[in-house]
Amino acid sequence: MVDTSLRNRVGIEFDRVTNVHSTDFPGYYPGEDHSWNLDKFKESFKINISHLNQESSTFDLIGVDASVANAFRRIMISEIPTLAVEYVYIENNTSIIQDEVLAHRLGLIPLRANPDYLRWFKKDDPNFEPTDYDTVVLKLAVKCTTNAKAPAGTTDPKELYNNAHVYANQIVFEPQGRQEEWFPDGVVPVNPDILVAKLRPGQEIDLTMHCILGIGQDHAKFSPVATASYRLLPTIDIIGEKITGELAEKFKSCFPEGVIGINSSGEAFVKDARKDTVSREVLRHPEFNGRVRLGRQRNHFIFSVESTGAMTPDDIFIKSVQLLKKKAQILRKFNLRD
């Protein structure tokens, strides 16, 4: 009889990590019937959202293989299209920032706009002309002058001069064609307080930006996430005799706050394993040898997605699912041809 109780556990020991191997086909084991069953998959598959707002989200993806979870992560980082500045046409730049550095800074400003209305710009075609269907135009025209009404004795450049600091909120959207209809709220920087440059009287910046669709694998400026990562759910099993009294307090101190609790009878119990960082501190103490088993759940992924603000984290994940589905459909189509 094969013991499958720890099959989905990565073992965490004092000096090594065990059970990290996988089968040639994930979830399939020799001599056992693991034929695909949709109803069985539905029973084990779950998505639990523990945190979600406009900037970040944390959710659990349960019941899939690491290859699937990692596919979602990679797609979120590098394959979801967003809008960013690609071409900068500088009419005048007398600031101390070189043209190419200024263009690079502008390109890295995240823009809030729905990319679904736009088509791909054909950069490789020298005869391709930009249209309202593939290009968004932004304008930045700022000149620094002396503030005649500055308070006497002040040394603050913001009070001494007008437009001493150039911020992202001074970028103006210039709708072309039907773009006013597609982007009723305009195309604006996610954070209006991003500092673009500092000017002094007589200096000015006058330029036009063309924004196009792109993906993170082309350039990081197109990536919709600041970070997208996951970790396996930690598991802590207290085995053997109960841990009580002073030993329970010491046991609790071996883990981050909130992982281990102590009940009214003085017995230690696992309160919230997901808060554990798997430091293995408890394994350093001989009194706990053979009394605790650490691990990670192989098919339980805790995702953390931090958006740049170009789109919400839930939209980013949904788009990653749609893209993975398209990839699978294309692969299936070619396999059917063969």
Rank of each mutant, 00 (worst) to 15 (best):
V190F: 10
D193S: 13
L195W: 03
V196G: 03
V196D: 01
K198I: 00
L199G: 00
R200Q: 11
P201T: 02
P201H: 03
I205Y: 02
L207Y: 03
H210P: 01
G214Q: 10
Q217D: 13
D218W: 06
H219S: 15
H219R: 11
K221T: 07
F222S: 09
V225K: 10
A226Q: 11
T227C: 08
T227W: 04
A228V: 09
A228R: 06
Y230W: 08
L232E: 01
T235M: 06
I236R: 03
I238F: 03
I238R: 05
K242A: 14
A248T: 06
E249Y: 07
K250M: 12
F251Y: 11
S253H: 07
S253F: 01
C254E: 09
C254M: 09
I262Y: 09
N263Q: 04
G266C: 07
G266M: 07
A273D: 08
R274N: 12
K275Q: 13
D276I: 03
L283F: 07
L283I: 07
P286K: 12
P286R: 13
E287N: 06
N289M: 13
G295Q: 01
G295M: 02
N299R: 06
N299G: 00
I302K: 09
S304D: 14
I316E: 10
I318T: 14
K319A: 15
S320V: 09
V321A: 15
V321P: 04
K325D: 14
K327H: 13
